[in-house]
């Protein structure tokens, strides 16, 4: 029963979020602010993780490919496929669910318990729309760019590590990352990213918006936001994969 209660309340909130903004110019300003907060603020961590993960994937693949039948360019191919299909769109979004999700839930939760959301409502502002819509739109806009950077840096990390460890040479790796490329896989990846961006921001906002109590409850909302966003990312990852691959 509790599940239906939360689902119902979530969809009612989403309906409020997507109602007509009071003043477009103020919302646009907020979107730019959120793009900076969500996107640019996450760039350093995403870059570091992606670079090293790409490198590790290449080294592990090189260690596993012991058969002489497997060509060396398979290293580049494997790194590209891993980064494009799963690591960048899914694992990086799981990491972002932790970073952005907890940030959003605690920010909105703190505003709730200090009556700042009530203040917005009394001014005649749709608080759900003003606080949540810019975050959702900013994430949907900026996350694909972040993930593209993650993909690039992951493959680049694989290239650097591959050459540095002597696992392959430059020509073979570059040949590998170009081999058997199918563009629809990029559509698949970015469909996932846009879906996950919506899930992370809307679920985290939901938990923050309905926080009741004090600082302890803000912490609990923040934890719930990360847990439920992560679970739903995995569920939707499965659903989208099933839709694209069958």
């Amino acid at each position: 029963m509790k599940l239906f209660f939360h689902l119902g309340r979530y969809f009612i909130l989403i309906k409020r979020v997507f109602s007509k903004p009071e003043k477009l110019s103020v919302y646009l300003k907020q979107i730019v602010h959120e793009i900076d907060n969500i996107g640019i603020g996450s760039l350093p961590i995403i870059s570091i993780i992606s670079f090293f993960m790409g490198g590790v994937i290449t080294i592990q693949a090189a260690f596993g490919f012991t058969s002489p039948i497997i060509p060396l360019y398979a290293l580049g191919f494997t790194t590209r496929e891993s980064m494009l299909l799963e690591f960048s769109p899914t694992i990086v979004c799981l990491i972002l669910a932790g970073k952005i999700g907890s940030n959003i839930a605690s920010e909105i939760g703190s505003m709730r318990i200090t009556e700042q959301i009530d203040a917005l409502e009394i001014m005649g502002i749709n608080s759900a729309g003003y606080l949540i819509l810019p975050k959702i739109l900013a994430a949907i806009f900026i996350l694909p760019f972040l993930i593209a950077i993650s993909m690039f840096l992951g493959i680049f990390g694989g290239y650097v590590m591959g050459i540095a460890t002597g696992a392959c040479n430059s020509y073979e790796f570059i040949f590998g990352i170009q081999a058997f490329f199918e563009p629809w896989k990029l559509y698949y990846s970015f469909t996932k990213v846009i879906t996950f961006a919506f899930l992370i921001t809307s679920i985290s906002s939901y938990f923050g918006y309905y926080t009741q109590g004090g600082a302890l409850e803000v912490g609990k909302s923040s934890t719930s936001a990360v847990v439920y966003s992560s679970i739903l990312i995995l569920v939707f990852n499965f659903i989208i994969t099933q839709l694209f691959f069958t």
Partner: peptide, 19 residues
């Protein structure tokens, strides 16, 4: 309701200023 609310000013107990 929102039109009426635009004519309301409210001083909250804790201030409720945007931090």
């Amino acid at each position: 309701k929102q039109e009426v609310r635009k004519q309301i000013g409210m001083l909250f107990q804790g201030g409720a200023l945007f931090d």
